[in-house]
Design a protein around this nucleic acid. Structure first.
Lengths: 221, 221
DNA sequence: TTCTTCATGTAATTAGTTACATGATTGA
DNA sequence: TCAATCATGTAACTAATTACATGAAGAA
């Protein structure tokens, strides 16, 4: 009832249901196709979450049979749309990143240089795969319009986010590979890229800041 | 014993212990200061994880007393260093992103335009906060050398990753804000930025790819 | 001496994952 | 008719979180 206990994943599903009704399998597919890149969840979670939405009165379930098997299709309710709108009005959390390969680069002095380079290679692989997907999707959008024409503007917003992200990671991995390659094989402490440090240190800090946010907690690495 | 059941979080802690021994509280602080940005974990987790390392023989615990309270300090063992090295040699997973505010932008047609703009504003806030931290840390590094001078090269690698990320998000949020601002208030379907779509669609797809990775699963949004 | 912040942990709960199981459909 | 893939779900487990509790130290 209270909708106070819904998670972001619940709302992600609810958002999909606001577009159209889906069977559970279709929901799982759609999560895999689109939300995977900024709200990834396991398939089994997607089978569970809509049940909660039904309990809360935010969705309805329709059961059919395909031969001998059950199929459940979910639709959003009016209260579901209200809850979604209320959630959309509240500012959401910033990006949270988990990046295991980067963790390994961070600790690289306790492993081999070859290992670090292999991790950077894996990151480049990821980047290029991502890039290929992005380009393929842009072409689809240009040529055939893509799915959900009425949502194209939103889709392109997210698309550009993914492109910027892949580009940034690509630039980084090229530079980082150069850096690590330049480290001496069994030498002492490698030297960082001081010119980069200088360049960042010289940047201005944006003046327009919220009141009360003026002291910078000693963050970063 | 088998170290097969260690999680990435276990290895993150183990990596910190490879640098020097820490008390649990110091570990938690260090996680908050540095790993937060690419392997964020709650404080209570950091109190639990070292116990497992001890059970596996990868670390040792030293108990002291501070007045009436216990303090546990952990150190890495030889087997711990071996396990860490073995882990570092295996390529790690690519980035995993959870981004609630972006999710809200994605579903923005079910809320108000003001809500979407507020979310973009929150993202800009995050970006600028991040930028300020990055610059402050670069200055620290330049001026006083920063903590762990022997790890500076690794630290700068990660630092540049964070800078690239913040820059990319900043560019994106500026553009996205313009886009959403241009959407008509209660109009029909907003038009996407076609010139951007064109530009991405026209990009080449990198030729040098691994064998077997030649088909692109229909990804993206 | 009181309040605040630093420091150290435990308990309860759950969101999420991995693994399993199996029916339907299609193409060779 | 066999194998592969599409489709639909459940069960078992745990990594991780939130919330709580409280001692120590320093400032006012």
């Amino acid at each position: 009832m209270s909708t106070g206990d819904l998670t972001t994943t619940s709302y992600a599903i609810l958002g999909l249901l606001a577009i159209r009704p889906w069977s559970t399998y279709e929901l799982a597919q759609q999560m895999e196709r689109s939300l995977k890149h900024f709200w990834p969840r396991a398939q089994s979670r997607i089978y569970e979450e809509p049940k909660r939405l039904v309990r809360e009165g935010l969705a309805t379930a329709t059961k059919e049979r395909v031969g001998n098997r059950p199929r459940t299709t979910y639709s959003i309710t009016g209260r579901g749309r209200d809850a979604l709108a209320a959630w959309l009005a509240r500012p959401g959390a910033g990006p949270v990143i988990e990046f295991e390969a980067l963790l390994k680069v961070f600790f690289s002095e306790h492993g081999t240089r070859a290992g670090a380079l292999a991790n950077l290679g894996a990151i480049r692989e990821w980047t290029q795969q991502q890039h290929a997907e992005n380009v393929a999707f842009a072409r689809l959008l240009r040529d055939s319009g893509g799915p959900f024409p009425e949502r194209r503007a939103q889709i392109v917003l997210i698309g550009r986010f993914l492109v910027e992200l892949a580009d940034a990671l690509d630039r980084w991995s090229v530079w980082a590979t150069e850096q690590v390659s330049a480290w001496s094989d069994e030498g002492g402490v490698p030297e960082p890229d001081w010119s980069f440090v200088e360049q960042v240190a010289a940047r201005p800090i944006a003046a327009a800041r919220l009141p009360g946010a003026s002291d910078y907690p000693s963050g970063s690495v």
